[in-house]
């Protein structure tokens, strides 16, 4: 049978087995191994005694501490709601002006609003609320549907082109694609629209701008107004300023006129509570600064 030999380095005996040159020492298991095995096992047993641990058919051992994660969480959530209700109740009850006048409440609005906006609105309007192609800038005071708290609250609750019966509807026709206007007319009115915010265009392309004005007067003033300043009742944007939702260069404006625009915002009345929507309204107003 196999005979062990002494390893000169460690002084331990080998087991006498050998596999393709590999031998094994018969070193005893060091005491810390047993110590930690027993310690962790003891910890386990104590934990089992204290906490829910082993199944017993239809039930389980409940543990001496009577701990129950589910009811603990329910309790915690209730407690947290209670603590928050101190200020959420006041926000729900007071009118906008009163809240805006209360620095403490506005602090809560900013904190809660930041997360609400980040988790729900930032995907379209951007984390800084400055919007992006297709989504309006909320950080300025240039409002499409009006800048009163009630107007903003309404947009948040029911959305734009959202399909909700209370929702705001704004449909710009596809003047080019649907052949309401010829391509030349679309080009001309594109120049005219550019000239409204950029006098240089008026000078450079006077003929086209003049032709475009005629097209504009016949087709666009219903919504955008005689002067092109838009209408908050219809959600038609002001075309005379430098704020553009879909871009202000020639090809973006051409595309808007040719294909029309039906931007969408979802209705939030069933996703966010009344208080949360109120906080968002206040938060958006608080952030908006005049340009």
């Amino acid at each position: 049978m196999s005979v062990g030999e002494r390893d000169p380095l460690t002084g331990h005996m080998t087991t006498g087995h050998e596999w393709n040159g590999i031998k094994e020492l018969n070193t005893p298991v060091p005491w810390p191994v047993w110590f930690f095995l027993i310690a962790t096992a003891l910890f386990g047993i104590v934990y089992w005694v204290l906490m829910p641990a082993w199944p017993t058919g239809r039930s389980y051992t409940k543990g001496l501490l009577g701990a129950d994660a589910r009811s603990a969480v329910t309790e915690k959530v209730k407690q947290a709601q209670l603590e928050r209700s101190e200020w959420t109740r006041r926000i729900a009850g007071l009118d906008y002006a009163a809240i805006q006048a209360d620095p403490q409440l506005m602090q809560a609005v900013r904190e809660r609003g930041h997360v609400l906006f980040g988790d729900n609105c930032a995907a379209c309007h951007g984390a800084n609320a400055k919007g992006g192609p297709g989504y309006p800038d909320l950080a300025d005071t240039d409002w499409l549907w009006g800048g009163t708290p009630d107007a903003i609250a309404h947009t948040i609750a029911y959305g734009v082109n959202s399909g909700h019966p209370e929702g705001r509807v704004s449909q710009m026709l596809a003047f080019g694609r649907d052949q309401i206007l010829t391509n030349d007319q679309v080009l001309a009115v594109t120049d005219y629209v550019r000239s409204l915010s950029d006098p240089a265009v008026a000078k450079r392309a006077a003929r086209s701008v003049a032709a475009g004005k005629a097209v504009f007067d016949a087709n666009c003033t219903v919504c955008h107004g005689d002067d092109g300043r838009g209408s908050q009742a219809l959600g038609a944007p002001n075309l005379t300023d430098k704020a553009w939702i879909f871009g202000g260069d020639i090809s973006a404006i051409y595309t808007s006129i040719h294909n029309g625009r039906q931007g969408q915002m979802p209705a939030w009345n069933e996703r966010l509570s009344d208080t949360d929507r109120k906080i968002l309204t206040l938060y958006v107003l608080d952030r908006a600064v005049a340009k």
Partner: peptide
């Protein structure tokens, strides 16, 4: 997952460290 199953998973994971380190 019921808490008692989580308890078992946790306690056995701790003991598991010892043979792993061996």
């Amino acid at each position: 997952l019921p808490q008692w199953v989580q308890t078992l998973g946790m306690t056995f994971s701790l003991t598991l460290l010892v043979p792993s380190w061996i």
